[in-house]
């Protein structure tokens, strides 16, 4: 663990703080893009109930896609840089978010949805005011799963020369510097835990207390 605590590695353009920020940057931007694509798709299909098999099939097919291959293919096609990293990571993040949103919207009690229409909500109101708020726990489930995968997998971006904590792993590998590799691994795991904690906090703030499963003295 000596490498990790050597002050020399904590500064400069190849220092740990910069690598952490790069890694966090890949993760957050990836998640934003993936959420913007996956949540509307999953919610729409969940709401209409039509094309569910497409969502499930697409999710499974994307899950089978090896991220390394996607990264390399886009590099070969579009050249080095951050673009291939985002393509590969967004494709990785879409399936869990889309599946979570779809499942969440489908899982809303049909009685609740019936009541929403019955009191005179329009379809957009049913989706935005009732289905999505009630689906939030499962949407967050998918989203946090995606976040963990993206943090872990952003490591391989360094294979094609991009930044992030993966640099420590691949540079360490090239130099046979085990300390540096280990530092990279530990920092990625740590970052993953912190990112997850952050989203757990966000979830607590944005999900209605009425949907908390236990501990509120609720019946049912």
């Amino acid at each position: 663990m000596g490498w990790l605590f050597d002050p020399a590695n904590w500064s400069g353009s190849t220092g740990i703080p910069l690598r952490l920020l790069e890694h966090l940057g890949y993760t957050l931007l990836t998640l934003v893009i993936a959420a913007l694509i996956a949540i509307p798709l999953g919610a729409f299909v969940g709401h209409t109930g039509k094309g569910g098999f497409v969502i499930v099939g697409l999710s499974n097919a994307l899950r089978a896609l090896p991220t390394t291959a996607v990264l390399i293919l886009v590099v070969l096609w579009a050249g080095l840089g951050d673009f291939p990293v985002y393509v590969a990571l967004v494709l990785l993040a879409i399936p869990p978010i889309m599946a979570g949103t779809y499942a969440g919207v489908r899982a809303v009690d049909p009685v609740t949805v019936d009541a929403a229409r019955g009191v005179g909500m329009r379809e957009s109101g049913v989706l935005l005011q009732v289905e999505i708020p009630n689906a939030l726990p499962l949407i967050y489930g998918g989203f946090r799963g995606a976040a963990l995968q993206v943090v872990a997998t952003a490591t391989i971006a360094a294979y094609t020369g991009a930044g992030g904590l993966g640099r420590l792993v691949f540079d360490g590998l090239a130099l046979q510097d085990f300390g540096q590799m280990l530092a990279g691994a530990v920092l990625v795991a740590l970052l993953a835990v912190l990112v997850d904690l952050g989203f757990a906090g966000l979830q607590k703030l944005t999900v209605s207390p009425g949907l908390r499963p236990v501990g509120t003295g609720g019946k049912r």
């Binding site: 963990l148 943090v151 490591t155 993966g166 792993v169 590799m181 691994a185 990625v188 993953a192 835990v193």
Partner: peptide
């Protein structure tokens, strides 16, 4: 189990031999 998941596969692969 959740923490195990957060370890990147490439990292686990290079650490395992050691």
């Amino acid at each position: 189990a959740n923490v195990l998941f957060t370890i990147p596969s490439i990292a686990l692969i290079v650490i395992t031999p050691v």
